[in-house]
Design a binder for these strands. Structure first.
Lengths: 345, 345
DNA sequence: CATAGATGTTGGAACGATCCAAATCAGTCA
DNA sequence: TGACTGATTTGGATCGTTCCAACATCTATG
């Protein structure tokens, strides 16, 4: 069963050349003659040769391992799955492979995973950090010349590159849209207060609300876990207030769906009796009933963007600190009531 | 910037021992004296040593790389994301790391990915194969002593191990449940006809329908892409027939959600006017409105199970062919109408 | 005809770990 | 004391590849 590995030396002997020549062929060097190359390639196929990247990697200076580490905090969230797929696309098209791991928001797990990836000699790391991650955790990596790109959640301090969505503008445009539909009391639902993303989105909310001339009422801001259940909970609390809001922009689509559930449970129809806007534009947003008006961030594109940035830095062989914010855009569907309004008007 | 790597030799010199001793410490060998070990460990921390698995792996016989390859066909599908998370749990708890890739149902991509993983020296492969994958594609792997476990979709032929859900029984129990609620014309919606999973589920449908004494009406079987859009399409076709069905079991939850959308578009309320049962029990099934009655397969548990099987085979150092079917269970919620019936009765 | 470039090819010496057989050390026993 | 024992430690040799400097071989030039 376990016959010995086929190595370059075996190939060399069978093809009647030296191992150096085989190596040259492997690297696609233009130095070898066409006929020689053909012969070598043929014997490789014949003997079923498989390249040993570990060995190659050992000799190669620095870490040209061809592996990039990708770490996300919650793979079961469609947003991150899409993101990972986007990264995979660009990473794979350049011959790299990705090493994807999930931390499930555990900072210990994250540390383990990153350490393990380092041992395996990743040439770069792309990470959506778990909550409460310290930027300093990645200092050893960049010190060793391994570029690190942080996605989705920005990490204050440290000279890391980052790719994040334009959160303030996204929420602000949602608020403006709701205001243009006549809403005056607009809630902001869901999200954990100790995250950078929450604060970015909240700042967009505040800016737009004050710009519209509505008073800033902090009771309209209802933090909650960024999940469907959290959304249902948040809308319940928002509706319990004396001076009810008539619309809400939600921390993300999961919260928005939860809010819709909560509305229905109270015999209120989202889009007709209450306006809901989400954030993310996950796949289901389009097909849900009612279709969700949401701020589209296109996670896959974001993943591609981040992947490109990382690969660029790997190619440059020098870690730099570049911050990209990807633009977002409001997608008007049904849950905000705009369509119904238009039909009546 | 790029200071030279810290190696075992550096550690050895700094700690005043030989590289062999350092190596022994690295492997946690009981041969080294406690005080020596402590000194070595300390200097490792001091100098910021990182283990080079590639180098170790080179010398080590066989492929004890500590990497397992995980390949799924559609990561954006929550089911597979959950599965991957389950695999990651067990894999990571034993010190392995996973190398996760997505094929997006492309068989070429799958080939590339698997080849790349081999080059990186994976010790085992866990794969949910893309459609129309040939079992023979994995022959080189198992010939080289690398265990392969196929999940979710079984692959006829070949001596691969597999972990699949008990599809026939799942669908059969759904059909029996609908029959017990009084339905006589029950549709089977969605799924690609050329997949093993479809045929397994369909066989369960047929068996249960004939066992219940209803005639087998092939027009009640409506294949469609296993997506939300496919579900909407399938229900439309099912309702267009003369002798309409009154209930449907769907290929998966995505199809079921799509079917619900389609019903609402026709002013039919799922659970009241038409009974819907899904398959998979994705996270949203619980929180959707109406909550989806579905066959629960617990993808995360399935992932864990598959991961354990793979690790077992890696540990045994001998590839064997073991087939596991994980049991499923019908979760009755609202979309089948059972709750409403009970309330009235 | 000698020489200088091109153009291909090649044998060692790395890379950073592990493994093995042999060496060293400290007790113990006769 | 000296042989014997078990516990620790240690130099190479080695894994499969790349890199480098040197070597052939061939062609064009003076």
């Amino acid at each position: 069963m376990r016959r010995p590995r086929v190595t370059v030396i075996d190939i060399a002997q069978a093809a009647g050349v030296s191992k150096s020549t085989v190596s040259l062929v492997l690297q696609g060097s233009p130095l070898v003659k066409g006929t020689t190359r053909a012969k070598v390639v043929e014997t490789m196929n014949e003997l079923g040769y498989v390249y040993n990247r570990g060995a190659a990697n050992l000799r190669q200076t620095g870490s040209k391992s061809g592996i990039v580490g990708v770490v996300v905090n919650d793979l079961t969230n469609g947003f991150f799955a899409e993101l990972a797929v986007g990264v995979d696309m660009v990473v794979q098209s350049t011959g790299f492979v990705q090493f994807l791991s999930n931390t499930g928001e555990s900072i210990d797990r994250q540390r383990e995973v990153v350490a393990s990836m380092r041992e395996h000699g990743i040439s770069g790391l792309l990470i959506s950090p778990a909550r409460a991650t310290d930027a300093a955790d990645f200092a050893p990596l960049i010190e060793a010349g391994i570029p690190v790109v942080v996605v989705v959640r920005s990490l204050p301090g440290g000279k890391l590159s980052s790719v994040v969505a334009d959160n303030p503008n996204g929420v602000a445009s949602a608020v403006r849209h709701l205001a243009s539909l006549g809403h005056r009391r607009i809630s902001f639902l869901g999200g954990f207060q100790d995250t950078a993303v929450f604060n970015e989105r909240l700042s967009g909310y505040r800016a737009a609300v004050t710009a519209a001339g509505f008073g800033l009422d902090e009771s309209l801001v209802v933090p909650a876990p960024p999940s469907r259940a959290g959304g249902a909970d948040a809308i319940a609390r928002a509706l319990a207030a004396d001076d009810r809001p008539t619309a809400a922009v939600c921390f993300n689509d999961a919260v928005a769906f939860g809010a819709c559930d909560g509305l229905r449970a109270r015999r209120l129809e989202p889009g007709r009796d209450f306006a809901i806007v989400g954030f993310d534009d996950v796949i289901e947003a389009r097909t849900a009933v009612p279709a969700l008006t949401t701020v589209s961030v296109d996670p896959q594109a974001m993943g591609r963007r981040a992947g490109q940035l990382l690969l660029k830095q790997i190619a440059a062989g020098r870690v730099s600190s570049e911050a990209i914010t990807t633009s977002v855009r409001l997608v008007v569907r049904e849950s905000c009531g705009a369509k119904q309004l238009a039909a009546h008007g």
